[in-house]
Design a protein around this nucleic acid. Structure first.
Length: 568
RNA sequence: CGGGGAGUAGCGCAGUCCGGUAGCGCGCUACGUUCGGGACGUAGAGGCCCCGGGUUCAAAUCCCGGCUCCCCGACCA
């Protein structure tokens, strides 16, 4: 492709709306154009990259036994009401009406439709296992789209769904898909960390996310180098530091004027926060619950929500707290009843705690569980932290931010049961197939790849997903000799199957070098009067500092060699 | 949904307080000179100042209403 004919223009200044690296670089490089919040046109540079990612995904999905289909984006709201997920998705579901005022949605995902496809096909165990996937645009009305392609409202996703006869069959398929995912990210040239993930309210038991480490990521993962444990913070468990433990002392009330926070209480009493108990009030749908954790531990709301099986969970507001008869700033489960009391297992670590006395300006000291209070449940609802012990007892956890680029999930029989899909097993019994689902954010991979591969001059594309393999620069492009030599080289490379972006513009050398660095194609080839005099062409990897001079007839081979360095 | 910021030429911005000719840099067009890390000169083109009302002799500027976009948080199988 000749730059003079190419639908792309670089910008010399950063667009004002872009702050995140990938967003900024993609706009500056002329890869895409924003149409609305979280909605973009993909220009040729971006689309070429996306197609390459899709190709790798497709090959690995096919190799893993997947069959490609294309399901409708436009779906009836009724479909979503049958599965009960219209409410669960809430405002994230794009809704519209047809000319007869029938409600429709733009699909954010496809479990309902794929289950219908499976239902139409599956009669007996002989039809299983089945693995169906598609690569398609998804719509989610995100509360806050951000950072270009990292979180859009319209994005390209590969979603796959598997159907097996039983849990053991799903285990096999699930492992196979995990391997396929590892292959995909490796072939894209993108290191990812595979972590245990939250499986949510409807979830089965297993769920893993593929996280690409990046500062701009929205996810935090905790991992342990010693043991290999890795989990999303939403899901991670850990061994917390022990608190002081001594002979249980008698409960006593102390005056704590004006003390309403754990930090103040610890300072006031001259103890560490781990020697206190903290009470937090949540509103779980219509119910107010009292949550007790050790003072130095934060409540993990994802764990709590999963435990409560509620649709909506948030901190209770002042009215709800008052209605429950609680004393903010000085609450504890001691002597409280008539409210659901949940405690984190951290209260079992340590004793002689300081805790609220359920009246203003007073706290208890030497609180011991279960001697001094009761709770309804003691469960793990703690947020694991960097520095905590790995849950397997080996080593300590470290934290890193990252971008979720893939998610595999054991769904179980929720959809097949709800939507009435079953099969006849070998003994003649009707059973629901066991499902798994597997997603990859294709457009998100592109953004994440740039987050992970750039420098202060621009993008550094991994070769397998670069829009072009080589960037051919003709310096002094108006010089007839340069023009002739560069044209010839462009033809030669093209017919050798190399994807070349040929900068044949009449721009100065500096402009071309800077644009080449910005676009970040893996190999840069320079034809110039200076090189022509010595009968050489200059070749440089984007990742490397130094360029090499090669004879004109050795360019194709040299480009191949450099590209091979990026193939994995 | 809470908090903050912004809409003026393709991009980045000034002008708005204090109403009176719509400006700067980059980019774009033409010609000439340059030519290995964002060259220079000359001459040009390019505007629904986000939208709708209002005030005024006169509104980018003041008043009212709305829309859009960005950032932080909440949220996000």
């Amino acid at each position: 492709m000749r730059a003079t004919e190419f639908l792309s223009r670089t910008l010399r200044q950063d667009p004002n709306e872009a702050e995140t690296v990938s967003h900024r670089l993609m706009l500056r490089a002329g890869m895409m154009l924003q149409a609305a919040a979280g909605v973009y046109s993909y220009l040729p540079l971006a689309l070429r990259s996306i197609k390459k990612i899709e190709r790798i995904v497709r090959e690995e999905m096919n190799a893993a036994g997947g069959q490609e289909v294309l399901m409708p984006t436009l779906q009836t709201l009724e479909t979503w009401e049958q599965s009960g997920r219209a409410a669960a998705f809430g405002d994230n579901l794009f809704r519209l009406f047809d000319r007869r005022e029938r409600p429709l949605v733009l699909a954010p995902t496809h479990e309902e439709v794929v289950t219908a496809i499976a239902g139409a096909h599956i009669e007996s165990y002989r039809d299983l296992p089945l693995n169906i996937y598609q690569i398609q645009t998804k719509f989610r009305d995100e509360p806050r789209p951000r950072a270009g392609l990292l979180r859009g409202r319209e994005f390209v996703m590969k979603d796959a769904y598997s159907f097996d006869t039983d849990q053991e069959g799903l285990d096999v398929t699930y492992q196979r898909m995990r391997v396929a995912y590892r292959n995909i990210f490796r072939r894209c040239g993108l290191p990812t960390i595979e972590v245990e993930a939250d499986s949510g309210a409807i979830g089965g038991k297993d769920s893993h996310e593929f996280i690409m480490p990046a500062q701009s990521g929205e996810d935090v993962i905790l991992y342990c180098e010693e043991s290999g444990y890795a989990a999303n913070v939403e899901r991670a468990t850990s061994i917390i530091n022990p608190a002081l433990e001594g002979e249980p002392l008698p409960l006593e009330v102390v005056d704590t004027p004006g003390i309403t926070t754990i930090a103040d209480l610890a300072v006031f009493l001259g103890i560490s926060e781990s020697q206190t108990l903290k009470a937090v009030f949540y509103q779980a749908d219509a119910e107010t619950v009292l949550v007790t954790v050790r003072g130095d531990i934060e409540v993990n709301e994802v764990k709590l929500k999963n435990h409560l099986h509620c649709l909506d969970l948030r901190l209770a507001n002042a009215e709800e707290v008052a209605a429950a008869g609680l004393t903010p700033g000085s609450t504890s489960p001691i002597g409280l009843s008539g409210i659901r009391r949940i405690a984190d297992t951290s209260i079992l670590q340590g004793n002689n705690f300081a805790a609220g006395a359920n009246q203003p300006d007073k706290h208890y000291q030497n609180v011991n569980y279960p001697r001094d209070f009761e709770v309804d449940e003691t469960v793990d609802i703690a947020t694991a932290r960097e520095g905590d012990g790995s849950p397997d007892g080996q080593g300590t956890l470290k934290a890193v931010r990252g971008i979720e680029v893939g998610h595999v999930f054991k769904l179980g029989t929720f959809f097949t049961t709800t939507l009435g899909v079953d099969f006849l097993d070998e003994s003649g019994t009707l059973k629901p197939p066991v499902m798994g689902c597997y997603g990859i954010g294709v457009t998100r991979i592109l953004a994440a790849a740039i987050e992970q591969n750039h420098d202060d001059k621009g993008i550094i594309f991994p070769a397998p997903i670069a829009p072009f393999q080589a960037h051919l620069l003709a310096l002094n492009a108006t010089d007839p000799d340069v023009r002739a030599a560069a044209d010839a080289l462009y033809d030669e490379l093209s017919s050798a199957g190399c994807e070349v972006l040929y900068d044949d513009r009449a721009e100065s050398a500096g402009v071309k070098f800077n644009d080449a660095d910005l676009l970040g194609l893996p190999v840069r080839i320079v034809v110039s009067p200076r090189n022509l005099k010595q009968s050489v062409v200059e070749i440089k990897r984007r990742r490397a500092d130094e360029a090499a001079q090669v004879p004109a007839d050795g360019v194709v081979a040299a480009v191949r060699d450099l590209l091979a360095l990026d193939e994995l």
